[in-house]
Amino acid sequence: MYWPKFKRTFFPGQQQGEEILLEIRQHWMVFLIKMLIWLMFAGILILTDWAINTYVPLLKTYPYIQYVNLAKSVYLMFLMLGLLIMWVMYYLNVQIITNERIVDITQVSLIHHTLSELHLSRIEDVTAEVQGIFGTFLDYGNVYIQTAGETERFKFDRVPNPHRVEKMILDLYENLPPEQKFSKAAMEK
């Protein structure tokens, strides 16, 4: 049985004796792609300098240069704020698998935080999905967990080693005592 990463930390609502087996968040490549977009915005500053030097040298003279400097300072501040928000959103979106349940902590926005839980016994089906060039070569993708209830399925968004995560969840389900396992037939009766 493969256990990708063991960690003994805490999360809100953790039960006594509940052991965290895996804590995952999006693959670093997902963050890197966002960073590249951020770098493009940072490159606008350099491009602006180049454009002013080439096309509008008047803006380099007093008093216009003062306005340009002020605009650049403010732009840089918001650029740093964007980087902080981007990292916070990446860091706070996390999925936790314990020996009892699966916890999906989602930070939808800075002021929208959701925490969903799924007991292992409610699992019906687990699917791993890898797609795209980066996903295939760097081995990251989505993991879908179909629950027994009517709620929509859980989704682990672009996590590393999706097949191993899928296998781990299935192994945990298989290791449950028989009386705890959810039976669809029993539900239909």
């Binding site: 403010v74 501040m77 704020l81 916070v88 860091y91």
Partner: peptide, 22 residues
């Protein structure tokens, strides 16, 4: 006014990080 918006967003981001960060 722009700086006030900047400070507000920064504080919300830092609060979220400190409150929900593991």
């Amino acid at each position: 006014v722009v700086m006030a918006g900047f400070v507000l967003y920064s504080l919300i981001a830092i609060y979220a990080l400190l409150k929900f960060g593991r």
